[in-house]
């Protein structure tokens, strides 16, 4: 049993209609988070009926009486805490309506399943793939390739709300044991972006878009130190939000060059440190992926290898 103290405070902010209360939660028994949390208590209306809901790491409970909120929070906290830890991430399958908490212990990422296998690996991507395969096999996610995909979300360390990755750092493909795939999040305070790599949280100060390449460089170096990366350009920033890309783009030099690889046009940019960057616009998702290289040929190689893996232009 966790020792949790919850007090409710009226929210006087601009969002007070949708979030009438902030629950201040104290819990000293968590090894990876806390001890203070501020969990928003949301209100919703169905006709004349008002209900309050609280969410912890993607799991939500509702009540008609605000006095019950502390009990709901305790139940949720108890429910998601494993080995004294709050999840670092959750995997979500929207259509199936399932949420799987993901924990990190030392170097390893762990996704337990109720009464089933424990998926455990150093890489989040491998855990995601194996858990996804398992859930497809037992038909929780339906037939593979046709239904749900797992989406990863971070868990904010202060509010315990889900946060969407602003982009990913990837070294593909995930069938290889030494591949890497880490979602990148913006910190709640807004001053940093961060990802977990090589057993630690890696941060870069937000600096008009330059932070994407700073964090990439930081993570690439720790992976190289770990012996899990030889060429830092094998790690690529993937699926940047449009806003993120626009900010980064403003810091790059546009030479007007463009590559065509497997029928896909790739505009070329140069970063201040001389790194050559190729842009793959994934317009269907409104996301932007980058190929990095020491020169334009390096970018071409990276793009060709990735397109071949994805079956583009084959």
């Amino acid at each position: 049993m966790l020792d949790i103290t919850t007090t409710l405070e009226q929210n006087n902010g601009a969002d007070r209609l949708s979030i009438p209360f902030i629950a201040h939660v104290e819990c000293n028994q968590l090894v990876n988070r806390g001890p203070h949390f501020q969990i928003p208590v949301r209100a919703s209306y169905t006709g004349m009926k008002k209900t309050y809901s609280v969410e912890v790491s993607g799991f939500r409970l509702t009540t008609e009486h605000v006095n019950n909120v502390p009990t709901l929070i305790e139940r949720l906290m108890e429910g998601v805490t494993r080995l004294g830890r709050i999840p670092h991430y959750v995997f979500i399958a929207r259509d199936a309506g399932v949420v799987y908490p993901v924990y990190t212990i030392d170097d390893e990422v762990l996704a337990p399943t109720p009464y089933g296998p424990l998926f455990q690996h150093i890489e989040l991507a491998v855990v995601r793939k194996r858990l996804g395969d398992y859930l497809h096999d037992i038909k929780v996610l339906g037939a593979k390739g046709r239904t749900d995909k797992f989406h990863v979300r971070g868990v904010d360390r202060h509010t315990l709300q889900l946060v969407r990755p602003i982009f990913y750092l990837k070294k593909r493909d995930v069938t290889k044991e030494d591949d890497f795939w880490a979602p990148v999040f913006r910190s709640k305070e807004g001053g940093h972006i961060y990802a977990y790599a090589a057993s630690d949280r890696r941060e870069a100060v937000i600096d008009s878009g330059k932070e994407v390449l700073v964090l990439h460089n930081l993570v690439a170096n720790v992976l190289k130190d770990d012996g899990r990366l030889t060429n830092k350009f094998d790690l690529r920033p993937d699926r940047l939000f449009a806003e993120m890309w626009e900010q980064l783009k403003a810091t790059l030099i546009d030479n007007g060059d463009e590559l065509t690889v497997s029928g896909v046009s790739i505009p070329i940019y140069t970063a201040a440190d001389g790194v050559t960057i190729g842009l793959e616009a994934r317009l269907d998702e409104e996301r932007y992926s980058l190929f990095l290289g020491g020169d334009i040929d390096g970018v071409r190689e990276q793009a060709a290898a990735d397109f071949a893996r994805r079956g583009i232009g084959v």
Binding site: P112, T113, G116, P117, L118, F119, Q120, R130, D133, Y134, D137, I138, T175
Partner: peptide, 15 residues
Amino acid sequence: RIGRFNKDGSANPMP
């Protein structure tokens, strides 16, 4: 048992 082995042949612990 279902979930004991992955498609790549590796094993998952079933605690």
